[in-house]
Design a protein around this nucleic acid. Sequence first.
DNA 1: GCGGATGGTGTTTAAACGAAACAATTGAAA
DNA 2: TTTCAATTGTTTCGTTTAAACACCATCCGC
Lengths: 256, 256
Amino acid sequence: MNTPEPMTAVENRLVQLNPHVSVDCVIFGFDEGDLKVLLIERNLDERDHQSRLYSLPGNLVNDNEDLDKSAMRILKELTSLENLYLEQFYAFGDPDRVKNSTDAQWLNAVRDVPTARVITVAYYSLVKIGDYQTAPSSFARKTWWCPVSEAPDLAFDHNKILNSALRSLKNKLRIEPIGFELLPKKFTLGQLQKVYETILGTVLDKRNFRRKILNKGFLKPLQEKQKGVPHKRARLFEFDQETYDNLKSGQFNFEF
Amino acid sequence: MNTPEPMTAVENRLVQLNPHVSVDCVIFGFDEGDLKVLLIERNLDERDHQSRLYSLPGNLVNDNEDLDKSAMRILKELTSLENLYLEQFYAFGDPDRVKNSTDAQWLNAVRDVPTARVITVAYYSLVKIGDYQTAPSSFARKTWWCPVSEAPDLAFDHNKILNSALRSLKNKLRIEPIGFELLPKKFTLGQLQKVYETILGTVLDKRNFRRKILNKGFLKPLQEKQKGVPHKRARLFEFDQETYDNLKSGQFNFEF
DNA sequence: GCGGATGGTGTTTAAACGAAACAATTGAAA
DNA sequence: TTTCAATTGTTTCGTTTAAACACCATCCGC
């Protein structure tokens, strides 16, 4: 796969005609009342977070690989998790999006044709942060769960992509019940409310929230309760996929 | 630009590595209470609509051309209109999406590398159908404003793309006031209601619709009235962009 | 056993919505 | 020229939905 020789004319032409296509993933997690995004560190120097260079996980789309499959592959390589919530939200195609000088060096090390244009299809994913195991086997790259509110300057146009992902997530959360994807399988209503408040950027009334979300009918109350907390133990709930699917096949509309 | 010779090994590899990228446009119009989509006819035989082959307008993305620019170019070539409402909604990348046998023949005639994979970024656009002039200058292709409810089998995965566009449009219409983009600059509330009813697939109460939409404040009533109708002449309205922008910069939420 | 923190609950009030009745304006038909 | 059919536009009223709001319960650690 290495092409150390200078490109031939025909190669050049084809590279120009056919931009590379990549997939980038904005992987969201939720922890301690904070929305986080999984970043990967590109060069492994030992300075502090401020001066390190981070980017979103992503890679070129393989031969004969569907875009969704490609995103799933990247997710699995990085998190060793499967069946994650995954949503394509936008394609970024500015011809100069990978032409920034600070990025060129890195591209030289990683790509066959570092000067080529790259169009990227961006996905966001929601993971239960507790299920995530850091730095799985084959991947030597360092990762960082970064609070989205403190995201540093990222490679390429990745800040733009992150912001766009946030907007899309916000819209989606109003239309479909996906908040629980960020929580453990069993969760309390307090935790769920925190997810909604954080993503929507508002504070919500506890009583109205509980009523609204429970009346939808797809949250199954469990007998089990929270353990080891220094206050009254909250009831645990599970998302009831079957009930939700039934509702959806009717003319049910979520609308938070 | 022609490559009649068989591809060399290196060409083959590069083509495999770098899928082609195209942009397809779903151009919506509204006429006689019907939502329509602009299709182009691929082969110019003289049989009836049923047996002809249609596709969505689209083309490969040019060198150094932004995706949005590419979509605008396609729109302008086809409609000779500019500054249209334009929204990217999804990228389609199934490796086999252009491998259908009935499509292969046509691709042979149009593409340098007809066997190459094509990833397409899809946009939808809203046009005031009255402004549209059929078959402008350089473009010899036949076009057809097809009622979306009667769309025939289209090339490639274009039916899938069309359906996806409809879903996106529906969602957007609930969140942002874009219905007027399909109407003449001056329109009646009756016309606007019809747009909403058609796209959302519901019937709406006239009185409630008027109250709801007028209370938003961005519809400017004109002195002018409808002409040439066999009944009471309805008042004409204009969308007031400035007022809307002001509202939006506050914490205004549309939510139809 | 007391303080800190969060869980859990019902009512009241205002705004939005849906449905009805009705008045007004026009062109066409009788 | 009168009547009719069609559609616009306003007012009203009851219903439904959403927003605002305060207190006690429970658990842990000290």
